[in-house]
Amino acid sequence: MVREHIDTIDSLLARYVAGTLPAPARVLVEAHLELKPENRVRVANLEAMAGQALMEIDPAALSDRDAMLAAIIESQAPETVAAAPKPDAVVFPQVLRDFIGFDAGDVPWRTRLPGYREYDLGDIDGCHVNLFWIKPGRTVPAHTHEGSELSLVLDGAFSDSRGHYGRGDISVADDSVDHRPCADAERPCIGLAVMDAPLKMTGSFRQMIGDLIG
Rank of each mutant, 00 (worst) to 15 (best):
K36T: 05
G122P: 07
V91R: 04
Y165V: 04
E149T: 12
E4G: 03
L150N: 02
D66Y: 08
Y165P: 00
R65M: 12
A89L: 10
D184A: 08
S75M: 12
G168C: 06
A104N: 11
T139A: 12
V95F: 01
I57E: 05
A185I: 08
S176N: 11
M55T: 10
L12S: 04
M68D: 02
A53Y: 01
V177Y: 14
V153W: 07
T144G: 12
G101T: 10
E38C: 08
S176R: 15
H5N: 06
D160Y: 08
T8G: 07
R167S: 05
A104P: 01
P59D: 11
R112E: 14
K135A: 05
C189E: 04
L62W: 09
R138G: 02
L21H: 00
C127R: 03
G51M: 07
L192T: 00
A173V: 15
P85K: 05
C182I: 13
P181L: 01
E186K: 12
M208N: 10
C182W: 02
D10S: 08
T80M: 13
D178V: 08
I6N: 00
E30Y: 01
S151F: 10
W133M: 03
P78T: 08
R97L: 07
I57D: 01
Q207R: 12
Q76R: 14
V140W: 04
A31K: 01
P198L: 09
H5Y: 13
A18I: 02
A82R: 11
E79F: 05
R117P: 00
P85M: 04
M1N: 02
E34D: 12
C182D: 01
V194S: 00
P22H: 03
F132Y: 12
K200N: 14
A157V: 04
D106I: 12
V140N: 05
V140R: 02
P181F: 01
Y165M: 03
L62M: 10
D106A: 15
A71Q: 10
S11V: 07
V177Q: 11
G166P: 02
L96Y: 09
S11E: 09
M208Y: 02
V2W: 08
G166N: 05
A44H: 11
D178I: 09
M201Q: 13
T8S: 14
